[in-house]
Structures are given as C-alpha cells and as structure tokens.
Simulated assay, not measured.
Amino acid sequence: MSILVFLTVISPYTTILPMIYMLYMVLFKKVSIHKNHWNIGLCLLFIWSLIVGVINYSFSSIVVSFALFMYLCVSIFLQNYCKNESIVEKIYMHLVSFSLISVIFGIIEKVIYVYFNINIWSRFLQITSQPVVNDRIYSTFGNPNVAGNWFAIMIIVGLHFCSIKSKTTKLFYRVATLLFVIALYLTGSRGAFIGLLCGLFIFYLLKGSKKDMWLFITIFIITAAVTFMPSEISKNVTAHGFDDSFISRLGIWKGCLKMIRIKPFTGWGLMGITEHGADFMKGYFYATLYHGHNIWITIMTTLGGVGLLIYAYLKINLFRNLKILYAQKCRIVPMLAGIQAIIIGHGLVDFTMIAPQTGLLFIASSAIISSLVKQNNSSSLYDDSNDSNHEKSSKIS
C-alpha cells in the first residue's frame, strides 16, 4: 500500500498506476463487492454520466465517464482493504510522510523563483496549455489550488496524529503540520484557506479535546487572517488577488447558469463545459477550463438535476455514516469529517475533485467511511451474539 500512496502523491500522472492496480484487483481477483449507499450512488453516477454523454453525442464525455467506474473500483478495493481503524491510520501516516516530499519540493520551487526568477514548471505548463502563475507553487500537483487542497487536508491529518501519538512521534507530526501550513500559504489558494477553516471547525467540534489546542489556535488565526485580509494586502502576502479571482469565477458561474437553464435535467456531459463553455463565458473562458469552479454548479451543468440528486444522495449518506461512527466512538471520525468539510468549503469556489490526486483522496476517504461503518456494525453484531450465547450457556449451567 505504501507504494500506491507514494505514486499518488508524487505526480498527477503516476496516480493512474494505483488506480489501474485497484481496477485490476477488483475485476480479475476475488474481491467482495459490498452493497452500500456509497457504492450504489457511485454506480448510478457512472451509469447516468454515460447516458448523458450519449444524449449529448459527446464521445469525450462518454470516455471520461469511465473515470467514475475506476473510482467505483477504487472504493470497492479500499472497502476490502481497510478492515479497521489501525489500517486506515497506517495509510494516512504514509500520506503524511510522502506529502513532506511535496512540501520540500514546493519550498525549493519558491526559492528558485524568488532568487533566480525561474518558474521550473513554466515550459511544461505551456505545453499542456495551462495558465502559468509564477508567484504560486505547484509542487507535485500541477495546479496551485489542487496543491492547496491537498496540504489543507494534510494539516487535518497531521493534527489528528498530534492528538494521539506519544511525545517522540508527536514532535514529528507537529513539525510536519507546520510545514503543511507553510506549503498551503505558498500555494496562495484562498479556496483552500476557506476549506481549511471549515475543516478545522468540524475537526475540533467533534474532537472535543484540549490537547494541542495551541497548535489549532495558531493555524486557525493564521488561516483566518490570510483568508479575510484586504485584497490590496493579500496580493503582496499570497501573490494572489482575491478580487480578480472572484470576478473571473463570477463570470464562469453566470455562464454555467445559462447552460443549466438550457439543459436543467440532463446537463451537457462531463466534458460539456470544455466543449461548450466558450459560447456562454465570453471573457472568462480559457483553454483549460474543465469545470465550473464550484462543486454544485459543475455537477448541475455537466450531469443536470439527476446528477445533482445522485451526488446529494451520496453526501447525505456519508454524513449519516459519520454520525454512526461518531456514536460508536470511532477515533478517526474527526479527521474523516474534517476532510469532508475541507472539500465542501473549498468546493464553494473550486472543483478540485476533478484532479486525479485530490479526486482519489476524496473517493478514498468516502470509501473508508463506508467500510468502517460495515466493520463496526459487524463487530457489534458479533459481540451481541457472543453475549446472548454466554447468557444461554449461563442459564443452562
């Protein structure tokens, strides 16, 4: 599993290898397929995306739909692999360790730009037609907002381990968490800052512990200050103006809403914004615009009202499962809920789930929630059965 995690962190292009491996294991090996809300919803989303692609005569949308099938296979694999909390925590420990490579790379990237005025990704980004933002780090993620989303999630994961580890190990996670804060700051992603504020709030609401409160307060104050500081100052601090970014998103949202009004039921297909967005977003459309910079708007534009209902079904049942795990006193619930909160908060201004790395991270955390509910329910049923058998044997004796 450590190799799969490493390949996921190190590049958006190597992320396909763990996905192919898990796809192979599910299709050609004996892997149990659990009938639960997450798997059913993801399967429905895949089928509906195929139907929408056919309705819109969009070959590219049909092809991209199979990414959802791969995510379904990833979910099935992880639900079989993550049998208890300790296994899940080992996976996230690997994530923290390998993500430090990304942090170091991002800091080096920033230093090279500051002292030598060289963007080490510029030539590659020009080849892929992506916009080049010199003052923000891309690290190993290919996009500053995706990098920001990843580092925000790693901050929540780091805080989780800070609260449960012994003194020696705790120092490592404290340092790692602070490095993730620095890396997040260097991405200049205000959407990720907003997501982190949501994640921190949910994490400590559920955690209910005073341990490492100083670390939480420090991160929260810094994040809040950067998120809500005036645009004139933020351009000098984060090298990213919020006003310019918001205005461009406003134009994209208005364009998407025009598209939704035309096809409210089916949507335009998963590649609909790329194929048709230029006609509705004049002045705000660029070559690499694949999404509507908002989770709900993007889903409504691409998969219509039906797709949005399926996504709502997935999210509602995820929250129900988190509630069940919290009642069962599962200790990683605050971390998993915090990750979901980051995705929702950042999703107000971005759709980072479209990127392979953050998409896989979201799918994995959601599948793990479903898996833990099943395992905990099975354990409780086993315990109840043992108790009843014990009572029967006592009566007989």
Rank of each mutant, 00 (worst) to 15 (best):
Y57N: 14
I222M: 14
C73V: 00
I295Y: 06
P18V: 04
S49I: 13
F280Q: 01
G359E: 10
L361Q: 03
V5K: 04
M335C: 06
A367C: 09
E232Q: 11
H34R: 14
S75Q: 01
L100C: 07
L200S: 08
S366N: 12
K83H: 00
T169V: 13
S99R: 08
N321W: 04
K329N: 11
S86P: 02
K254A: 00
G292M: 10
I10N: 09
T177I: 15
K167Y: 10
K254L: 00
I217Y: 13
P12W: 07
S365P: 01
M1I: 11
V237K: 08
F124W: 12
S379T: 13
I354W: 02
N149R: 06
V132T: 05
F46L: 11
F203T: 06
D387E: 15
M93A: 01
G208C: 03
W296G: 00
R190E: 06
A239E: 14
K254D: 01
S209W: 07
F28W: 10
V9S: 08
A147Y: 04
L50K: 01
I354T: 07
F69M: 13
G106R: 06
L178K: 09
N39V: 10
I55G: 01
K165N: 02
N143Q: 08
I219H: 10
V103H: 12
A278V: 06
Y382P: 10
I222P: 11
D383W: 10
K167T: 12
L179Q: 04
V63E: 05
M1A: 09
Y138V: 14
I156M: 03
K83N: 00
S380Y: 06
L7P: 06
L200K: 09
T140V: 10
I396V: 15
Y326W: 12
A147L: 09
K211F: 05
L289T: 02
L125M: 14
L178M: 15
C43Q: 07
P144W: 01
C43Y: 09
I262W: 03
A355G: 09
T187C: 14
V54Q: 10
M25Q: 10
E232I: 08
I153Q: 10
K165Y: 05
L308K: 02
M25L: 02
I324S: 04
L196K: 04
L257G: 00
I310S: 04
G292D: 07
T274R: 04
I368W: 05
L318G: 01
S209D: 13
L78I: 07
L322N: 02
L184R: 08
G283R: 00
I368R: 08
W253F: 01
T223K: 11
F161A: 10
I40R: 02
A225T: 12
M1C: 08
M271R: 09
F280H: 06
L95P: 00
S86R: 12
I112N: 04
M300I: 00
P334C: 05
A341E: 05
V9T: 10
F285G: 00
A225F: 14
S163N: 14
I299H: 05
T266C: 12
I33Y: 09
S102Q: 11
M271A: 00
D387Y: 14
N321P: 07
S58H: 03
G148D: 08
P230N: 06
I137T: 05
I221M: 15
M229D: 05
K165M: 14
Q328D: 06
D383F: 12
V111H: 03
F201H: 03
M25S: 04
